[in-house]
Nucleic acid binder design. Sequence first.
DNA 1: AAATTTATTGCTAAATAGACACTAAATCGG
DNA 2: CCGATTTAGTGTCTATTTAGCAATAAATTT
Lengths: 248, 248
Amino acid sequence: MSLLNKFIKVGITVDNVIFGFDDEQLKVLLIKRGEEPYINNWALPGYFVKDDEDIADAAKRVLKELTNLQNVYLEQVETFGDVHRHPSGRVITVAYYSLIKIQSYESQLQVGSIAQTARWFSLSEIEDLAFDHQKILDSCVKRLKLRVQSRPIGFELLPPKFTLSQLQHLYETIMETSLDKRNFRKRLLAMNLLIDLDELQEGVAHRPAKLYQFDSQRYKELVAQGKGYIFDLKEHKRKPSKVNGVHS
Amino acid sequence: MSLLNKFIKVGITVDNVIFGFDDEQLKVLLIKRGEEPYINNWALPGYFVKDDEDIADAAKRVLKELTNLQNVYLEQVETFGDVHRHPSGRVITVAYYSLIKIQSYESQLQVGSIAQTARWFSLSEIEDLAFDHQKILDSCVKRLKLRVQSRPIGFELLPPKFTLSQLQHLYETIMETSLDKRNFRKRLLAMNLLIDLDELQEGVAHRPAKLYQFDSQRYKELVAQGKGYIFDLKEHKRKPSKVNGVHS
DNA sequence: AAATTTATTGCTAAATAGACACTAAATCGG
DNA sequence: CCGATTTAGTGTCTATTTAGCAATAAATTT
């Protein structure tokens, strides 16, 4: 069949930007490569797609083998296929990002994995990634910032029970902005997508906050009804005092 | 090199959803396949990526060979790589869409092309596309609807000189909504992205409209200054009369 | 010149967004 | 135990934005 003449021998990979949130910063899970090329370099976790494997399944496999997590939010972002992006030959990679609850992460590194180690990095720490992984990361970060405004995916990064302050801080971190507390709460609660659990935080050295849960049932209903939903978090111009937010 | 063991023999293709606008409807350029599989079926124009060709270049090549157009708006959307999406073997396709001025299109079909013919279809006419092309098309249409609200790309579909009514009708068509004329004009002009050419339409059997041009210079400046720009066209609830917009 | 068709323009009411500051409830340290 | 510290929680007013609405203007056609 003449079609097959047009087939080429290439590597197809998926790379996965795994995001987590530790109540302070947005983090990304990177691996230290244990193989050439770029041995000992930090890189995005990724795998070759098998010849009988759907691409989305390969992305899930990366996640499963590195974190032992399944059924997490996973979204395809962009495909990178420049001829020379990989030093060993033609490798085309499909980039995904996923959102996991960092608290549920335990390293699952296997012997024989392509990775020596894995570690969470905050975005500002990251430098000298292997291949074109910085470009891939940037693309996924950009997509996350976009998505977070049109889908209620922030909850994927928080524990099942969270406080409104945690949620606000998450959005502030992702969007790199600051938000007004009262207006944030007003808007969030108006969406009717949060269940007040009538429980309080424990073990904190201050007034404990109420715990909430995301109402995914109701969200599904809204989507099913085709109701537009915009999680539009506008910027809040803080008073130009106390500009430095550096920890002492 | 053990890496190469993981390379597989696959077809890498690009498929391109080429959009045009004929002052009435949003159109998509399809080809009638002249080869197996799906011979005589309508399909998205696409090609195999060559082994020394960047993927984005392959997408440009599709466009160039079918329309003889270059330097048009082209955006990658999604990669489809399910194992069985192509009957002849593993073929992974990267979907792009492009926006062209339909008036400048002239068929450039080459002898020996994979296409027998090419023709513009309105979205509602399209059925029974080859492969998973309907899915690809849907994905690109969805993306276009999104993008049109965050970037001034509508102009790519109009002639260089256009009237405000044409522009409004374009947006109404893409967004599948109707917009209030006065509010539309107010908002558009407030953006300061249109140059009033002080010219009038000619050859129309009614009051001629003023012609405008998109000020891409100014748009670049705004982007360079990092000024957020939202082309946010909300829905307009028309009076519930004259619901049928069918032509006589 | 009357009929037809589309272009052009502004105001007002309603809804939304945004700024803003004090009290409450817990722990901690002396 | 009480004062200091830390974070939680809450309402109002103003400015801005959005949305609805209709009459006149300029060309062609008959």
